[in-house]
């Protein structure tokens, strides 16, 4: 082997080691969270590093009995599914019009939407709270859902308009000759081709909507409408001295998103990268 080859090899080994250390720094805290949730408080003190003595779900069972965790979980699912579904529908229709038709306010409208990507909605919290109180929507899932949709619109329009522009005009023209109305063209020509982009929009919005803590904290008060992050904060405050339980609370909040990511990771990367390169 040449000197050059050895050098290359050494570089590769050091790169590999660096990346391995980085990976351990990511996985260890997460693993620790799961493992500790199976320990007893005594074990947490005496055996912080090792495996738990037994994998009993005591803390998880306790968590389900002392709190309405299934309700929180259900609420989070409802909020996420409805927000994502609505975002996809209303941004794809709007993007279709913005991408395929010419009218006077077109460019202005596009910029109007896209500007929202750099406006942090939190800064409007006080006014949104006022609006919700006036609409009697405070303390309902609707309040969190509608805010989730509003946040998702700018990015959705941004990605989808670009994507629809790339769909060749000939396809629509052909359908038009066949006598299709414009909405039908949208439905049968555009939507099927748009699926990967719609998936990207859904995936990109999934994490912030599922994990949102700020608006639930401000709007939601009743136990029956709490979402998982809000419940996590509440339970963390209530059971601070029961360490195993607290770790179980954190694990429960993390499992759904991590599983979702691991299953769809390829699409996450594609969706987010397309956003990055266009931005």
């Amino acid at each position: 082997m040449t000197r050059h080859g050895i050098k290359r090899r050494l570089i590769k080994i050091s790169l590999f080691s660096f990346l391995s250390i980085y990976t351990v720094s990511i996985l260890y805290p997460i693993l620790l969270m799961f493992l500790t949730s199976f320990k007893t408080t005594r074990e947490i003190f005496t055996n912080p590093f090792g495996l738990p003595a037994s994998f009993e779900f005591t803390s998880y069972i306790k968590l389900l009995t002392i709190s309405n965790y299934l309700t929180y979980f259900r609420n989070s699912i409802i909020v996420t599914v409805i927000s994502l579904g609505t975002i996809i529908v209303i941004t794809s229709t709007a993007s279709f019009v913005l991408a395929k038709y010419n009218f006077r306010w077109k460019n202005f409208l596009y910029l109007f939407f896209v500007a929202g990507m750099i406006i942090p909605i939190r800064l409007g919290t006080i006014s949104i709270l006022k609006l919700m109180i006036e609409m009697h929507a405070n303390d309902t899932l609707f309040s969190v859902i509608i805010v989730g949709i509003a946040v998702g619109i700018p990015f959705g329009v941004f990605i989808l308009t670009d994507f629809i522009k790339m769909i060749p005009e000939e396809l629509s023209a052909a359908a038009r000759i066949d006598g299709c109305t414009e909405p039908t063209i949208f439905r049968i020509v555009i939507i099927p081709l748009l699926r990967p982009a719609l998936a990207a929009v859904a995936i990109i919005n999934y994490i912030p909507i599922w994990n949102d803590f700020w608006f639930p904290l401000v709007f939601l008060k009743s136990d029956s409408v709490k979402t998982v992050p809000l419940a996590t904060a509440l339970l963390f405050g209530q059971y601070q001295t029961n360490y195993a339980l607290v770790f179980a609370v954190l694990s429960m909040a993390s499992i759904p998103v991590m599983l979702f990511y691991l299953v769809f990771s390829k699409h996450f990367v594609q969706g987010l990268s397309s956003g990055a390169l266009k931005g």
Partner: peptide, 18 residues
């Protein structure tokens, strides 16, 4: 009709509140 829902929600719950 296609544009309105997005404009409505975006304006009422994001722009105006700011």
């Amino acid at each position: 009709l296609f544009l309105l829902p997005a404009i409505f929600i975006y304006t009422l719950f994001l722009l105006i509140p700011i």
